[in-house]
């Protein structure tokens, strides 16, 4: 190289008193010349502050994919952190749910005679999956850190509701896809929605009295018993369990459960043994 950036030129560059071409020359030269780069004086205090910020950002970590999605959905960062730690939002759980549903859909296509049974079974089991997700949203045994969580000021109804919502969303979404992908009459794809919603809200309402996992087990179990008893005959399942009258009943029950949940939300502390 034929020339180097001396201190005077550097100062002029910094002040902005160089002609455009000389600015470009300094830029190009500094880019290519390690010695001139090293000669640039450092504002130590400022650089130290920036370094701390760099180290902190790296140390605190980047958001995972689930977090990123939630952020994109417009949730504030701290809320996302809470939701992302929800045990049932881990990819392993979501992947397992997706696999079960994929198998169900695949089974429905394998044989015509088997298809009908499979679809009935799908209808029967579909409302239970979101309840399982709710059960693992908060508190023991799903959340290994529940003891620490329950002793913090954020513990309590709003955290439970947020997490339950966060896990029901993906569970319902995946089921919706599975339902639409399955062969069968169009209404099958949505018939299970109301019962599923009822079981979820009902579980939360019941969780104002019982621990969350037990509430979920109780309601989910009851549903399965009733549904499987009826499940021996497909017409019974279609006509009664998912018929118009039953659906209207589910709707009323959902409203009732929401009222209970609203009134008793203070008691929604399913992580605590109280």
């Amino acid at each position: 190289m034929t020339w180097h950036v001396d201190a005077e030129l550097l100062q002029e560059y910094e002040r902005g008193s160089l002609t455009p071409s000389r600015v470009m020359a300094v830029d190009a030269h500094v880019q290519a010349c390690a010695a001139c780069r090293a000669a640039v004086p450092a504002d130590t205090a400022r650089l130290d502050r920036t370094w701390l910020a760099v180290a902190d950002t790296i140390v605190t970590g980047r958001p995972g994919r689930a977090e990123w999605l939630l952020r994109r959905a417009g949730l504030p960062e701290h809320r996302v952190r809470l939701l992302a730690a929800t045990p049932a939002l881990r990819w392993s759980y979501l992947a397992a749910t997706a696999a079960v549903l994929a198998l169900a859909v695949a089974a429905a296509y394998t044989g015509q005679s088997a298809a009908r049974t499979t679809l009935v079974l799908f209808l029967v089991f579909a409302p239970v999956l979101p309840v399982l997700a709710v059960a693992t949203a908060y508190g023991p045994p799903a959340d290994s850190m529940h003891e620490i969580t329950s002793a913090t000021p954020m513990a309590g109804p709003s955290l439970v509701l947020w997490r339950a919502t966060a896990v029901v969303g993906p569970a319902m979404g995946m089921e919706m896809i599975a339902a639409v992908a399955s062969p069968g009459p169009g209404w099958w794809a949505v018939a299970w929605l109301l019962p599923a919603f009822l079981l979820c809200v009902g579980t939360l309402a019941l969780a104002t009295v019982l621990p969350l996992a037990r509430a979920a087990g109780l309601l989910g179990g009851t549903w399965l018993l009733v549904a499987l008893a009826a499940g021996s005959s497909a017409p019974l399942v279609q006509g009664v369990l998912f018929g118009p009258a039953a659906q209207a009943g589910y709707l009323v029950a959902v409203i009732a459960a929401i009222v209970v949940l609203t009134l008793r939300r203070r008691h929604l502390n399913p992580g605590e043994n109280r």
């Binding site: 560059y13 910094e14 780069r37 004086p41 650089l47 370094w51 760099v54 790296i58």
Partner: peptide, 19 residues
């Protein structure tokens, strides 16, 4: 290593960005 890179490159980077 990142710290060393930072010490080496942040000063000129700041200067050029500040322009």
């Amino acid at each position: 290593a990142l710290r060393l890179l930072y010490l080496r490159h942040a000063p000129w980077m700041r200067l050029r960005l500040a322009r």
